[in-house]
Design a protein around this nucleic acid. Structure first.
Length: 205
DNA sequence: CACAGGATCGTT
DNA sequence: ACGATCCTGTGT
């Protein structure tokens, strides 16, 4: 993958947790705004009781059932847009929620959209990310690998990662609530609710 | 057609 | 701790 290049569709066609971890440090670009992803959560198919795919295909979640590489955007609590990145083969129904970012370019535009706020309140939290980037439901289903639209681009390598349980999914089953499917870059202030995040276990063997 | 309930945020 | 705010999925 070329530095600062568009990420090709093959990147997304892998297990959602793998893609989620790999998304940290990559850049979301739309117009003048470039944001580096610092926190994500994985949602894996109809068997995941926290996923919008838990009850099968609906008009809203249709993009989640497409082949990986497109956006899935929905309105939450009637107020906030949530930006997801669809992963896996068509029919699988998995996606990664972008929970936090750090600003890279277009900070003036980001501040305008976020009401002049500064610090983590600018971009830590999924509703804040979508608002700062200028993404709403019209982007749901759009590809992320075509130049000129909403783009995901390669960027500098990342360091240590943290992981923990997903946030705000109390309605899910006990087992699904405990899955450590939330990931964040270690040491960054651009993370919503740092509580519950711990360094990833080191793989043995 | 009616209704309950959010993958949240900002303020009290 | 709470209210905002509206779309969605489900049931009648």
């Amino acid at each position: 993958m070329s530095p600062s290049g568009l990420i090709p569709p093959a990147f997304y066609l892998r297990p959602v947790v793998e893609v989620a971890r790999d998304l940290l440090g990559r850049e979301l670009c739309l117009g003048p705004v470039v944001l580096r992803i610092t926190e994500v959560e994985a949602y894996d198919g109809p068997g995941d009781s926290a996923s919008h795919c838990r009850s099968g295909r609906t008009p809203r979640n249709a993009p989640m059932w497409e082949a990986g590489g497109c956006a899935y955007v929905y309105l939450c609590y009637g107020l906030h847009h949530m930006l997801n990145i669809v992963t896996g083969p068509a029919g699988h129904g998995a996606a990664v929620l972008v929970r936090s970012c750090e600003p890279v370019r277009g900070l003036d535009q980001v501040r305008r959209r976020r009401g002049g706020l500064g610090g983590p309140a600018l971009l830590a939290g999924p509703g804040r990310v979508a608002q700062a980037l200028g993404v709403d439901r019209r982007f749901s289903g759009q590809p992320l690998f075509r130049a000129g639209g909403l783009e995901l681009r390669d960027a500098a390598a990342v360091g240590e990662r943290l992981c923990g349980p997903r946030v705000g999914v109390d309605y899910a089953t006990e087992a699904d609530r405990l899955l450590p499917w939330r990931f964040a870059l270690a040491g960054t202030p651009w993370v919503s609710r740092p509580r519950g995040l711990v360094p990833e276990p080191v793989p043995v063997g």
